[in-house]
Design a protein around this nucleic acid. Structure first.
Length: 903
DNA sequence: GCTCTGCGGAGAGGA
């Protein structure tokens, strides 16, 4: 008898931490033999442990579930027994393991091919090769066709866009265009074959995120609510390949969750063309349809669960998890080499000798650190659905409350969307960033991935593939940096030069050639630094405290290397540092540089050096070959370390890599740059700010710092600074540099405001006349703000201005962004106000530091002496400290600072 | 409790 809807037992969701996992057993039921496994789950809502029975296929989840994992069982039914509150899966249930771990659809695809392939793709990345580049072009053309673009035009443009990559691969544009046209013709023909009617609803490139299933991905296209996946290859079998089905079914699962039936998937094998008729047999139509039923959706979730469970334990797949057939696998060699070198178990077996234990340990340690870092990216995704829009905006990760103004279609079929905004809300989103533009709900509502073209005070312009009436934009969290760091780690340990590794692992002392040449004649340390950089066979380390002419020295070293016929990579973590180094190089009259990077990242006055990746289809002398030559023939290439990990840059090789701001780089980030060169020079200051990492880990020790400790003899400290008056530098020199930092000249030592034209120091209040001043402020009890301090800062600025100091010679530094905002409201626009972290690398004549110190100093921000060092070493002529002296005195280092400032 | 830059968006194919 069927139950009436009202009588049906209530379905609930059980989510929580696994407390115990029972064995899988088979029992007889009225429906026959069935598997079951019992779990104890500590419910998230009330922390009560309850028993959940997993039936049928879900029972196998128990084989890899472990205590401590998160699990979410949907549509469970109350199933009490013996007075105990129990639950069981139903026919509609899903069991999701570690739902907060977001698995990408392409990862599910490679996992079902072979779990080792998933792992190999992850650690080694996909190198630059023709099938991938062509595949990308075909996908782009597909999108263009769906948006109604002319085929020939789309092909020509997309091939031109890929000019650099095709050139590096030695491909001819016309030949590629012809090949792409054949693939595209299959699509075009299929679209025209009556498959399409007027009611056909198409959309391309849809981003899907499911927090219920812990999956994300981008579907090539959705047609009438059904997923369509494009394949560049050929498949003349009747059925689509299994992994292709799984890929499409994954999108089907996510669409289904949104209430779309999505019960049919289509795979378009665009190499299946009638041109092959005669030689090929079998099914030659490009489109193959298959049905996506509950069984396939469950399969997708279980495959995704296997990945999440494996990642929870940070274990390495062996290939035995699935019945992969290694003898047919094209990755077999790579697979065996990796397992051989890292001594991993693998179904394919091992070849070669394992790398030394310390290298294996190093790999494993950083692998885990980077995977931990990946979780923090996933946590950023989670905030998309866990935080309210207002909380996101407060977190600076979204701009909300926008008024959609209008849309216009761009020539390429993409859309330009505009919205107005009011208020002065700040966010970390900048022009050029990829964002989620949504109707207010970026996960369950309508959201499009777009690029911010303009971010004005009252207007925001984004471009997207499909239009959306957006009222909110969110930062799009990306795992790309983690992936690139993993690849750099893999390349360094598995493919690294043996001598290089001996040095990195402390087995061989670095060596230097001899040279007596003088490079810089008025600064011995700089001269020695250039000499070390030029003569290093392995590595040289240049330690540059504030104001010591790091960039000048770098530029001189790069020039010297080029003069010796070397090809040099110039890199740093931030675009700003790369551009600063380039500026120094240009100041010294050297212009033969190519800058690789994104336009929005590169400073305007350096954009003329930017490598143009697109070929000009109308210019016979500007094809792929010319694009590649521009890069490959450049004696100096400048790029951020992140870009060094890109597919294009990883194909490049250099004699030397010079890395600035190296103390702000994680080890894997540094490896990304130095992997490309025979020898390397790291420039930095480990007494200034360390790398920024989201996770609290030892990733925050730089390779620079480790090498300085390991090989002090390979390092030079630049000991003469050209920035601060003696009085200002004294504390930092004593406290952070063992008293070794000195003013470069008497002029620097004696710097004061009175040197500047039009300034009458005597008109300053008495407490601001010294080069170092302390304004003792009682302070309010604000959490990360102090209005009283902010007032005193504003007063001080007025005093300086009244004495004739231009406002743009003044900067204010505060430890918290909240205080930065507090001060910003009170001071004129031309005074720079910023956090310590952002001010690193800059300097001003007058610097006012607001400490926001009241009562005690137990904020971790004060624990890092490096942050204090940066704050105190930005001023050239006048440094003013604002804070509660008694509070500051509660801490040794600050007590010494107050003594110094008030003496 | 706090500081916060990069990158670009996924992408193929072979028995």
């Amino acid at each position: 008898m069927l139950l009436a809807a009202g009588d049906r037992p209530k379905r609930v969701q059980i989510r929580g931490e696994v407390a115990d996992v029972g064995d899988v057993r088979e029992i007889s039921t009225q429906y026959g033999e069935r598997d079951l496994a019992e779990l104890r789950v500590r419910r998230e809502v009330d922390h009560e442990p309850v028993t959940v029975t997993l039936w049928g296929k879900w029972a196998e989840t128990a084989e890899y579930l472990e205590e401590g994992m998160e699990v979410n069982v949907t549509d469970a039914e109350r199933d009490d027994y013996d007075g105990e509150e129990r639950y069981a899966t139903t026919g509609d249930s899903y069991v999701v393991v570690e739902p907060s771990f977001l698995v990408d659809v392409t990862d599910v695809r490679s996992w079902v091919q072979c779990p080792r392939m998933y792992y190999l793709n992850k650690i080694s990345g996909i190198p630059l090769n023709y099938p991938v580049v062509k595949g990308t072009i075909v996908h782009e053309v597909f999108g263009d066709l769906l948006r109604g673009r002319d085929l020939d035009e789309a092909v020509e443009d997309r091939v031109a866009d890929a000019g650099l990559q095709l050139g590096l691969l030695g491909r001819d544009a016309d030949a590629v265009a012809e090949e792409v046209r054949q693939n595209a013709a299959a699509i075009d023909g299929w679209l025209a074959q009556g498959t399409l009617t007027d009611e056909d609803e198409w959309r391309s490139e849809q981003l899907l995120i499911s927090h219920r299933f812990g999956i994300k991905g981008r579907a090539d296209a959705i047609r009438r609510g059904m997923p369509v996946e494009l394949k560049t290859g050929k498949n003349t079998k009747r059925d689509p390949r299994f992994q292709d089905k799984i890929q499409a079914a994954s999108y089907g699962l996510m669409l289904h969750e949104k209430g779309v039936p999505a019960d049919t998937g289509t795979l378009l094998y665009t190499k299946n063309t009638t041109l092959d008729r005669g030689e090929a047999t079998g099914d030659l139509s490009p489109a193959k349809e298959f049905s996506i039923g509950p069984g396939l959706r469950d399969f997708v979730v279980r495959a995704r669960n296997e990945i999440a469970a494996m990642e929870h334990g940070m274990s390495v797949p062996t290939g035995h998890e699935a019945d992969a057939k290694c003898e047919y696998c094209f990755e077999q060699d790579a697979c065996m080499v990796v397992s051989g070198r890292l001594d991993q178990e693998s179904k394919a077996g091992q070849i070669g000798r394992a790398v030394p234990d310390e290298e294996q340990e190093y790999f494993e340690r950083f692998y885990e650190l980077l995977e931990t870092e990946r979780r923090t990216v996933h946590a950023e995704y989670a905030k998309l659905w866990e935080q309210t829009a207002e909380e996101r905006a407060d977190d600076d990760r979204a701009v909300i409350g926008l008024d959609f103004v209008g849309k216009s279609e761009l020539p390429g079929g993409r859309w330009e969307l505009r919205a107005e905004r009011s208020g002065d809300a700040v966010s970390k989103i900048r022009e050029g960033d990829v964002v989620l533009a949504s109707d207010g709900d970026p996960v369950d509502g309508h959201a499009e991935l777009g690029r911010v073209e303009r971010l004005g005070a009252d207007e925001i312009v984004v471009t997207t593939d499909e239009p959306v009436e957006f009222s909110r934009i969110d930062v799009y969290p990306s795992e790309l940096s983690v992936d690139r760091m993993l690849t750099a780690l893999h390349d360094a340990v598995l493919k690294g030069d043996p001598r290089r590794k001996d040095v990195l692992f402390g087995r061989t002392e670095p060596e230097f050639d001899s040279a007596s040449e003088t490079f810089i004649d008025n600064n011995d340390a700089q001269d020695e630094a250039v000499r070390k950089a030029v003569t290093a066979e392995d590595l040289a380390l240049i330690h540059g405290p504030p104001g010591t002419g790091k960039t000048y020295t770098i530029a001189r070293a790069v020039r010297a290397m080029v003069e010796r016929g070397e090809r040099v990579l110039l890199s740093a973590f931030t675009n700003r540092a790369v551009d600063n180094a380039l500026e120094a190089l240009r100041d010294q009259g050297f212009e033969d540089v190519v800058r690789v990077g994104t336009k929005s990242g590169v400073r305007e006055d350096m954009r003329d050096l930017l490598l143009d990746e697109c070929a000009d289809p109308d210019d016979p002398d500007d094809g792929p070959e010319e694009r590649a030559a521009e890069l490959e023939e450049a004696p100096v290439v400048a790029a951020t370390t992140s870009t060094c990990g890109s597919r294009v840059m990883s194909e490049q090789s250099f004699d030397a890599a010079v890395v600035d701001e190296a103390s702000q780089l994680t080890e894997p980030n540094t490896l990304a740059a130095i992997n490309l060169a025979d020898r390397f020079v790291l420039v930095g200051d480990h007494h200034q700010l360390p790398p920024v990492v989201r996770s609290e880990t030892e990733l925050s020790t730089s390779l620079f710092e480790r090498m300085i400790d390991e090989y002090p003899a390979a390092s030079v400290m630049l000991d003469r600074q050209y920035r601060m008056a003696q009085r200002i530098q004294a504390f930092a020199s004593r406290e952070f540099y063992d008293g070794e930092l000195r003013p470069a000249t008497p002029e620097v030592a004696g710097r004061s405001l009175s040197d500047l034209e039009g300034i009458d120091v005597d008109t300053l209040p008495a407490n601001l006349r010294d080069r170092v001043a302390m304004l003792d402020v009682e302070g309010d009890a604000g959490r990360h703000t102090d209005a009283v301090e902010a007032e005193r800062v504003a007063e001080a600025i007025e005093s300086f201005a009244a004495a004739g100091v231009d406002r743009d010679r003044i900067a204010v530094i505060a430890p918290f962004r909240a205080q930065v905002a507090e001060i910003d409201r009170r001071v004129p626009e031309d005074v720079a106000v910023d956090t310590v972290d952002r001010f690193q690398g800059s300097s001003k004549d007058v610097v006012i530091v607001s400490f926001v110190a009241t009562d005690d100093l137990d904020s971790p921000i004060f624990e890092d002496y490096r942050r204090v060092n940066v704050a105190l070493t930005r001023a050239k002529r006048s440094l003013v400290l604002v804070g509660d002296a008694d509070a500051l005195r509660t801490h040794d280092r600050y007590a010494r600072m107050v003594d110094w400032a008030t003496k």
